[in-house]
Design a binder for these strands. Structure first.
Lengths: 330, 330
DNA sequence: TTGAAAGCGCTAACAT
DNA sequence: ATGTTAGCGCTTTCAA
C-alpha cells in the first residue's frame, strides 16, 4: 500500500541521529538525553513509524507470540472457545500475540508456526498434533493433562471434587440410581470423570449406568442416549450430564417422557453455560470458569518463557458447583 | 531449549552444498538436481531443521499472518466465536497463520501486530480499535459493514431478505402484533434489522414494538425485556428475537406467563444455534452460517493480499431460515 | 551521550 | 546446476 513503510533509519535521519540512538530513544533506554528522546519520538510519530516485528524477532531470536492449540473435535464446543478467548484477553495484558494452531495447520507438511511457547487445551491422548507440538522442545502449558515424558506447565482443576460434590448432592436429594452421560475417556477430563463416577458408585454400592457419546456429538445423539438409558434402566432417577450442551437435551427428552425434572428425576451438568441458568427448570452445573482457565494458561506460559516460573510449574483452577432447580426442586 | 536450532547453513554444510542450493532444494525450486534435493532434504530431516519465519518475513517483507478482530462486547457471543473458528479453519487450508487481535491489544500504546491483512468482524460504528486498524493501510475484509472512506473487501448476507421472510412467516401463521427484541443499532447487522422491522411494520400498517438490549446482555436482561413487552402490549402474539441466546429466554418467560409457544404466541430467532433445535418447543431461527462466514472472509482476504481479487471485492454469504415448532405449531 | 559495525537467517540477483 | 554477494530492519557489542 502507499509507499514503503518508514524504518528506523528514516526516523534516525529525520531526527538527525544515528539509528542506534533512535532505537535506544524509542525503547526508552537510559543512554539518550531527554532532548534527543523527544526529537526521535516526534520524528517517529510524524513518519508513522512502526517497528518491524520480523526484524526484531530475527534479532532477538524470540517471536513475542505464543501458540494455542485445541483438538479439532473441540472447536464446536462453546467451553473451549471461551477458554481460547480467556487466553486471548490475558495475552493482550501480557503484550504477547496469540496464534491459534488448528489441527489442519499441522496436518500436512507445513512447518509449525514460530512461537515462543505453546498452550495445549486438554490434549487428547495420542493426539498426533499435540505430539508434534510437544516435540518442538518449546515451553508448554497444558490445561488438565500432564504428559509424563515432557516437563510441561499444567493448569488443572479439582474435577474429582466437583463431580463427587454433584453426586453426593444428587444422593442427598434422594437419587438412588444416577446415570452418567459421559464423554469418552480420550481427554483427561473425560477420563477422570469416568473414574470418579465408577469409584463413587462402588463406594455407595450403586450399580453404575454409563452411556457414552463422542465429543462434538449433536443434540440428536444425546437425545437418543437419554432414551437408551430410560429404556435399559427405567429406575434411573438422576442424570449426570458430561458433554457441554447435553443437559438441555436430556432435560427436554425427560420432560417429553412425562418426567418432571427437579421432582421425580434430577439433572446435573458437568459443564455450565449461560443457557443452563435459563432453561425450564434451570440446571445445576459445574462452572468450569473457562475464561479464567485460558487466562491462567497464558499467565503461566509467559512466566515460564521469561524464566520466572519452572517449566513444570502447576497452577490450580478454581471451579464451583452452581445449584439450581433441576436438582433442588422448584 | 537444548542447543541452538539448526539453520539453513547447517543443513547446507551437512549436505555439502551452498546455502542457496539448500534453500532452493527445500522449497522445491527447479534449479537443483534430483540428487542434491534428496541429500538436502535428508540433511534437513536429520537436523530437525525448521525454517526461521522471522528471517523469511524480513526477507520477503510479508508475514504470512493475518489478523482478525472482533469487538470486545462480542467475545462472549457464540456466533462470533464460531465465526472466528471458521476463519481459523480456512486459514489452515490457505497456509496462513492467524493472530486474533483483541481490543485490549490495541487499547494501549502497543503497536498493532504485524500482519499482511486484517479481518474485521461486524465492526461497530466508531469503534476506535477498528479505526486504528483501518488506518494501517493494509488489505482489509469486513463482515457486513462496509466503510465508505476505505476500500475494503466485504462479506455480507441478505439479512433484510431473511428477516422479511421471518416476519412474513409470522404473519402468515396468524400473528397480527409481532414484537421485536432488538440488538442496538451499533453493528451493521443490528442497524439493518431495526430498519427492516420498521419498514415491514409500516408496509403492513402494524404498530412496531421494539425493545432493545445491549450486546452481551445476560439472560436476566432478556427475561426482563420480555416481561416489559408483555406488560406494555398484552396483545403481542409473536416475538422476533435478535440477540444470540435471547430466544430461549423469551420462550421460557412466555411459558412461565402461561402462554403456549407455537400456539398462542410465536417465537422466532434471528440467530440460530444448536440449542434452539432442542428446546421445547424447537425455535424457528435464521442460520447465519458463522463458520462459512469466517471462512469466506479469510478466503477473500488471502485473494486480495495475493492480488487475485480487487481490494473492494464483495462476496455474498448464503443464510437460511430454519422453520421449527415455535412458529409452525406442534 | 552518541556512533559505527556486525550479524540474526533467509532468499533474490547476479555470477559461473 | 550451483555458488557468491548483498541486504531485508533491527539491536547489541564495541569504540569514541
Amino acid at each position: 500500500m502507499s509507499r514503503r513503510a518508514a524504518t528506523i533509519v528514516d526516523v534516525a535521519k529525520r531526527a538527525g541521529v544515528s539509528r542506534t540512538t533512535a532505537s535506544d530513544a524509542l525503547r526508552g533506554h537510559g543512554r539518550v538525553s531527554e532532548g534527543t528522546r523527544v526529537a526521535v519520538e516526534q520524528a517517529a510519530a510524524e513518519l508513522g513509524y512502526r517497528p518491524n516485528t520480523a526484524a526484531r524477532s530475527l534479532r532477538a531470536a524470540t517471536t513475542g507470540t505464543i501458540g494455542i492449540h485445541l483438538p479439532e473435535a473441540m472447536t464446536r464446543i462453546d467451553y473451549y472457545l471461551q477458554t481460547v478467548y480467556g487466553a486471548l484477553e490475558q495475552a493482550g495484558a501480557d503484550e504477547v500475540d496469540v496464534t491459534v494452531i488448528t489441527s489442519r495447520r499441522l496436518a500436512g507438511e507445513q512447518p509449525p508456526p514460530s512461537v515462543d511457547g505453546i498452550i495445549l487445551l486438554d490434549p487428547l491422548a495420542d493426539d498426533p498434533v499435540a505430539e508434534r507440538l510437544l516435540a518442538l522442545d518449546l515451553p508448554i502449558v497444558t490445561l488438565e493433562r500432564a504428559f509424563g515424558e515432557v516437563a510441561t506447565g499444567v493448569v488443572s482443576a479439582d474435577h474429582e471434587g466437583a463431580i463427587r460434590e454433584l453426586l453426593d448432592h444428587l444422593a442427598s436429594r434422594g437419587s438412588a440410581a444416577p446415570a452418567f452421560l459421559a464423554s469418552p475417556a480420550v481427554t483427561d477430563w473425560g477420563t477422570r470423570a469416568q473414574v470418579v463416577y465408577s469409584a463413587w458408585c462402588r463406594e455407595q454400592r450403586i450399580q453404575p449406568t454409563i452411556v457414552e457419546r463422542p465429543f462434538g456429538s449433536d443434540s440428536a445423539a444425546y437425545a437418543e442416549a437419554t432414551r437408551e438409558v430410560l429404556a435399559a434402566r427405567p429406575q434411573t432417577d438422576a442424570f449426570l450430564c458430561g458433554p457441554d450442551g447435553s443437559a438441555i437435551v436430556v432435560a427436554d427428552v425427560l420432560q417429553d417422557a412425562g418426567r418432571v425434572v427437579g421432582e421425580d428425576v434430577l439433572v446435573a451438568a458437568m459443564v455450565d453455560s449461560p443457557a443452563l441458568a435459563y432453561t425450564d427448570p434451570p440446571v445445576t452445573a459445574v462452572d468450569l470458569a473457562p475464561r479464567a482457565a485460558g487466562a491462567l494458561c497464558v499467565e503461566l506460559l509467559v512466566r515460564i518463557i521469561r524464566g520466572e516460573a519452572r517449566p513444570d510449574a502447576s497452577v490450580p483452577l478454581p471451579i464451583e458447583v452452581r445449584y439450581r432447580a433441576s436438582t433442588l426442586g422448584r
